[in-house]
Write a protein that binds this DNA or RNA. Sequence first.
DNA 1: GCAATATAGTCGTCTGAACATCTATTGTCC
DNA 2: GGACAATAGATGTTCAGACGACTATATTGC
Lengths: 157, 157
Amino acid sequence: MTESVATKRKFDSLQQEAYLSLWRTYDRLRALEEKLFQTHGLTAQQYNVLRILNASSESMPTLAIASKLVSRAPDITRMLDKLETAGWIDRVRSPDDRRSVLIEITAAGRKKLKELEGPLAEMHEEQLGHVAAKDLRLLCDLLAKIRSPHEPEGTSW
Amino acid sequence: MTESVATKRKFDSLQQEAYLSLWRTYDRLRALEEKLFQTHGLTAQQYNVLRILNASSESMPTLAIASKLVSRAPDITRMLDKLETAGWIDRVRSPDDRRSVLIEITAAGRKKLKELEGPLAEMHEEQLGHVAAKDLRLLCDLLAKIRSPHEPEGTSW
DNA sequence: GCAATATAGTCGTCTGAACATCTATTGTCC
DNA sequence: GGACAATAGATGTTCAGACGACTATATTGC
């Protein structure tokens, strides 16, 4: 009810409403995530780098990490600089291809991830605990359908 | 199928998958939006300011605009600076409350909005044209449910 | 009616995102 | 095998986002 009234008043089209709703919802949930990461001294993107490295059994070249990240990262180099300074990753020039730089997570990096596990689960509960699992599943499937034509070839998304 | 495999492999929980899917999808659609706005010399947030002012019949105080925006805007002042420089808005000190600054859209601002109408509709079609209306409706409702506990009191969202 | 407090907006400053350009190394193809 | 193109990443620069401190005005409570 209120929805459709609001729609008529505020949006030019259903597509616009969908996009702005997506943006708004992301923004609201992001605020919670950012607050958490801030207290632990890293950013969401930095956390995702560690998560990706941890999930991979081996070290990965710089740009391979960038392509797996949630959000584009043209400044991946400087992001890794910070992670390296914090001691959470190591950089090694690949012997096979001296252009590429292999990144691996350090013990300290794994420790940091471990430390974040609990708080992160709590934060996700705060973000989405009020939503039924079947709705979340539905949401994930809808979103996958929505973004599929916009994914680059051979992406892991 | 592939979904649930991916889930087991890549995410720690359904909630995390939902949040990261949301982020990823937003990021993909945003890239299209940004490209469009860039060619027209404004940002998505700036466009939304104009859209809000245009929808309102009267001028609005600065912070009222900020609270209606999709994404938080602590730097609303400087955003408005740019819109003013471009000639799309006017600022007037309120005679009733000299603390507040009333913003109104100019004729040039309305013209700019008009100019963007067509390209914007095309862009939304590219973003979401492949998704059925009922799925978009479903998405909007799901998203509203998801963000509702995270909205500030008395928000227009 | 005056001190204390709240509100509206501005400004300084720092960090992160975006983009173009640059260097080093590797691959290609004649 | 040497010129040329492609790839991996680093770097310079510019701009938006975030946060706190600050000024001006209004409201409240005594």
